[in-house]
Design a protein around this nucleic acid. Sequence first.
DNA 1: TATTCCTGTCCTG
DNA 2: CAGGACAGGAATA
Length: 172
Amino acid sequence: MSFQLSTTEALRYATGQSVLGPFAVAVSGNDVVAVVFGKDRQALTQDLRRRFPGEQREDAPALAPVVDSVAALIASPARRADLKLAPSGSAFQKRVWRELQRIPAGRTASYGDIARRIGAPRSARAVAQACAANPIAVAIPCHRVVRGDGTPGGYRWGPRRKALLLQAEAGL
DNA sequence: TATTCCTGTCCTG
DNA sequence: CAGGACAGGAATA
């Protein structure tokens, strides 16, 4: 849940535009801790404030390269992003998120598949819940998880974004 | 096809 | 602390 770093430095964030709409990226030190979508700046900062109750400040100049990297990743989700990710969550959630990062671009896995791979074969629904709680959109590819029957399943950021992401990495 | 139960988390009262 | 809601799925009737 909450995490502690050796520095007393506040969380830094910046916003940007992508092919899937406005987004925000938050970093702690050099680690990306969140990538979220939202309809405008106000919704984005409100989302961040809800996720990270502690002190935080906008730092657009310093984070410009990170914003560019994230925007490029959203446009081409199949590419390998050189971002250091540090999502905070429960042990179960981290197991799920780690497994998601092993799904190759252009491929999908079902919620049940992920549940089996982390050794919790009955926990497909809990896996879906963990996907929904994924704090780092696109970079942790929760969009590559679909239902066992092949239908898309849900997506925290809307079915349209999920479909577009999958379509973007389908042709390789 | 419709019920029922299962699993881990989060939100509410 | 109890109960319900979830981005699912397997088992059962």
